[in-house]
Design a protein around this nucleic acid. Structure first.
Length: 862
RNA sequence: GCCCCAGUGGCGAAAUGGUAGACGCGGUAGACUCAAAAUCUAUUGCCGAGAGGCGUGCUGGUUCGAGUCCGGCCUGGGGCACCA
């Protein structure tokens, strides 16, 4: 028997698909539903890694399944191709970033094609294609006109390694998301997209995304961080500070605790604090001290609360004779709310710590349920729970929520402020001081200021001769590119040399895929047909980055009339990472998996270096990374086991949302399966027609198994339980082996023929090349990729006679055989007549017999 | 600190409130082989010779019946975080 040879079959079938153009998305067809499957497009690093193999295999299962189910499927691929790695490669190796990127794309395209993905390659583009980013500039200008783009000086996150500004979302734990460098604060002119205009919509419509993981929705909700409260001004008690004649505006979520106020505080970089510092060197010294503190988690946790009494006082809004001191305090943040607060120490831990340190009063105004108002005191722990307001004059006796409403109403009546909603979300800073990106299509004119280019001036293309040889912005130092004329006055002007964040590039590519040739950014007819993406697949690491930006841009473009959908991704699936065991030599150096061999004896496993036999320590299972040397190169796996075995293993071992552990033994298991499948098809005599089984028990077992399998696979794929589905394939293969073709009756052979026809189609989404080879072997018509998904007969998914477990007092004590659908009363009689059960019931009195139809019997006895 | 998720054999994992451990990996024994690899067969949760007993992080509860539902706790992972 010939061993299955993927090296021969896999390329053969890929070119067959290619020739038949089977993966090209069709035009809108009446009566045929559409399905848009998209995996997050890759950065063209030049190398396919196992994470890609997993991500794209997952999407491919869905795409192939939906095709087989009769959907008009769109499954495109492109390249997120701008960004720093190209610039770094350029600087380190003196190559041109453009050439480097397109070379990488060529290499990765051929690797992805080798994976046998059902991609419509006719729609491929890279974000660094002028044809793409020129269209991006077009809609950027539309947003500019709509007031959704603005430029202002502000404090921004500066990544000193990548030498560029970062958005808040791109700073993780005080460090740049890509470089890992500690981010600095800098004051810069910066371009922003007004994502905060959409804060409410972005939160509220999360509710409609019922095919998104709760986790991602929660993360976005937290990130946007909506809080409801009041914004109001404290009036000055001793004459106004210059520039603050209307008072000092604060934000609070707890207006109900106003009678517990004991001070008002401002952030060290609040304009009032800066004004005071100009005249008072002690205040200036205090502010300088605050700035020294770092922004990392550990530093914040241990940082002591410190303050500076400005000597200014304000009046309590509800009692003009009540004076409150104004402090500068290090724990108040300038970029949240108004940068100023009132301190209520009894009901806020930070305020309490601060008040204890500086001897400020602590007055409890919320009485916890069941506490005695005369005796209740706050010691070291602020009380933040529910309760009844007391010590608060007209608010006394109210619960927290009504008290908030009443306080806000009074503030509003006094004209001092109003109820307000505040967000943690900041506007999206999109300018990057980098040369390998989409140029921002505006010019700076001495006379007219910042001028947006007209559409006719697009695309603003990158020059071909950028010098990436040294750090910094290659575009800004180009000798001639930025010199231009003002489209308004015709006078001399310079081009903006900042480029757009690459997250802008990826925030609309899914819409461009619907018609990548269109002369406008988006072909509305095509987008209306294909969008939203029915199933989007990618890593959880983009939960608040790409996925938030893409939602925002979709809403903004929809408001410009360019799109009809307000959400880009109807279904989202976040897949886990690919991990591997780590190995280290005694000295601690990491060792690659290919350099070791594992031996097992009983339950213990040992690893040794190949060749020397030096023992190696088996370490934790971790995400594949070059630094820990626990990577496995996909192309080496393809070479040994073929693409199908790799695809199968990466889908079979863990549920797709969880991390999958790669192991050599595991892929060998998948390889065994591939060979056993092929052996099963080879052993079947050719030309046997599928036929109804009659009552041959073997044939019936095969048919029942097959129909059960079809049902299970259909449900498993719909529910993203690929690992369970694949387990059922293995199970069914074991069943087929019990009913070998060799020496089988005609009835069994006919049942096998029916089963194998279904089986070839069921494995097609997972091991598409093998499926074609099997399909051809049994004389299936056309390509299996175009064959319809098999149907099942519900009547055949159940056995005629069932084995029902019998429990006594909830413990399994035996079993009986009963026909499917047997009436509970009949089953009860059978159970009580059973001698083995009767033995178990000796000396007991039966109180109750529960029969769950076709399931279980439980006898309650004492 | 707040929010979310997860704890099941040696390992990856299954299990609409109804036979816990499907399926795979690994192990053990055997067949084939001069031998090995590959392949095939059997077996494999734990304790026990067996009958049987015990088992889904711990602990209470609901239920005829709980891995699954509810309460409390422990451990691990993730997100947010001096956010007023």
């Amino acid at each position: 028997m010939a061993r299955y040879n993927p090296k021969e079959t896999e390329p053969k079938w890929r070119s067959a698909w290619d020739k038949a153009q089977v993966f090209k998305a069709g035009p809108p067809a009446p009566g045929q539903p559409k399905y848009y499957v998209l995996e997050m497009f890759p950065y063209p690093s030049g190398r396919l890694h196992m994470g890609h193999v997993r991500n794209y295999s997952l999407g491919d299962v869905i795409a192939r399944f939906k095709r087989a189910r009769g959907f008009n499927v769109l499954h495109p691929m492109g390249w997120d191709a701008f960004g720093l790695p190209a610039e770094n490669a350029a600087m380190e190796r003196g190559v041109d970033p453009r050439a480097w990127t397109y070379d990488n794309i060529d290499r990765m395209r051929s690797e992805l094609k080798e994976l046998g993905l059902s991609i419509d390659w006719s729609r491929e583009f890279a974000t660094c294609d002028v044809a793409y980013y020129g269209q991006q500039q077009a809609w950027f200008l539309d947003l500019f006109k709509a007031g959704l783009v603005y430029r202002r000086e502000g404090v921004v996150n500066w990544d000193p390694v990548d030498q560029t500004v970062l958005a808040n979302e791109q700073v993780v734990d005080g460090r740049g998301w890509r470089s890992g460098a500690v981010v600095e604060k800098r004051k810069l002119n910066q371009w922003f997209l007004r994502i905060t205009d959409y804060a409410d919509d972005l939160i509220d419509s999360l509710k409609t995304l019922d095919r998104w993981p709760d986790k991602v929705r929660t993360m976005q909700e937290n990130w946007i961080g909506r809080s409801k409260g009041a914004r109001f001004a404290f009036r000055w008690a001793d004459g106004p500070a210059a520039g603050f004649e209307d008072g000092l505006e604060v934000y609070t979520t707890r207006p109900d605790t106003l009678y517990g106020a004991s001070f008002v505080g401002v952030a060290p970089d609040h304009p009032l604090a800066e004004q005071i510092a100009e005249k008072d060197p002690r205040a200036a010294a205090f502010i300088a001290e605050c700035r020294r503190g770092g922004a990392s988690e550990a530093e914040i946790e241990t940082a002591e609360k410190i303050g500076f009494d400005t000597g200014l006082t304000v009046a309590h809004p509800f009692d003009p004779d009540w004076k409150l001191p104004v402090w500068i305090a290090n724990f108040i943040l300038m970029d949240y709310g108004t940068g100023a607060i009132f301190g209520c120490p009894a009901h806020d831990q930070r305020d309490l710590d601060f008040a204890r340190k500086y001897g400020l009063p602590v007055t409890a105004v919320v009485l916890p349920p069941g506490e005695d108002p005369a005796a209740f005191r706050v010691a070291d722990e602020a009380y933040v729970g529910p309760g009844t307001i007391f010590n608060s004059r007209e608010l006394d006796g109210l619960e927290v929520e009504p008290a908030k409403a009443k306080a806000i109403a009074r503030i509003e009546a006094q004209g001092q402020g109003d109820g307000a909603t505040v967000y943690r979300l900041r506007d999206w800073g999109v300018a990057r001081q980098r040369g390998w990106g989409c140029p921002i299509p505006v010019v700076h004119c001495d006379r007219c200021g910042v001028v947006a280019l007209p559409r006719s001036a697009l695309p603003v293309a990158l020059p071909d001769d950028l010098d990436f040889g040294k750090p910094g912005n290659a575009l800004a130092r180009h000798p001639t590119w930025k010199t231009t004329t003002c489209p308004d006055c015709g006078g001399p002007a310079t081009r903006e040399t900042d480029t757009l964040d690459t997250f802008v590039d990826s925030s609309w590519y899914f819409a461009r895929f619907t018609n990548p040739e269109f002369p406008e950014p988006i072909d509305k007819a095509a987008a209306d047909y294909w969008l939203p993406v029915d199933q989007y697949i990618g890593g959880i690491e983009h939960a608040v980055l790409h996925l938030l930006y893409a939602r925002f841009v979709t809403k903004a473009l929809a408001d410009q009339g360019m799109l009809s959908v307000h959400e880009p991704f109807a279904g989202l699936f976040t897949q886990g990472m690919v991990t591997h065991e780590t190995y280290r030599r005694q000295g601690g150096e990491w060792v690659e998996p290919r350099e070791i061999e594992i031996e097992a004896e009983g339950k213990t496993r040992r690893a040794r270096l190949v060749g020397t036999g030096e023992p190696v320590v088996i370490g934790d299972v971790e995400k594949m990374s070059k630094s820990k040397k626990n990577t496995v190169a996909p192309e080496e796996i393809f070479e040994v086991y073929g693409v199908d075995a790799a695809r199968l293993f990466v889908l079979s071992d863990s549920p797709p949302e969880r991390d999958a552990q790669w192991s050599n033994a595991g892929v060998e298991g998948a390889w065994r399966f591939v060979n056993r499948v092929w052996a099963e098809f080879e052993s079947q005599p050719q030309g046997v027609a599928a036929a109804a089984a009659g009552d041959d028990p073997g044939a019936l077992a095969i048919r029942r198994g097959a129909h059960r399998l079809i049902k299970a696979m259909t449900e498993a794929i719909e529910g993203f339980r690929f690992n369970s589905g694949i387990a059922r394939l293995y199970e069914f293969l074991n069943l087929l082996k019990e009913h070998k073709a060799e020496g089988a009756s005609p009835a069994v052979l006919a049942a096998r023929a029916e089963a194998l026809s279904a089986f070839a189609r069921l494995i097609a989404p997972f091991t598409p090349h093998l499926a074609e080879e099997c399909w051809a072997r049994i004389g299936g018509s056309g390509l299996v990729v175009s064959a319809p998904w098999p149907d099942y007969d519900p009547a055949l998914t159940q056995d005629a006679v069932l084995t029902l477990p019998v429990q006594v007092n909830g413990k399994r004590r035996g079993e009986i055989q009963a026909p499917a659908g047997a009436e509970p009363a009949d089953v009860e009689k059978m159970v009580l007549d059973d001698p083995e059960i009767a033995r178990r019931l000796e000396g007991l009195t039966i109180r109750k017999v529960i029969v769950v139809k076709d399931r279980i019997v439980n006898i309650v006895a004492a």
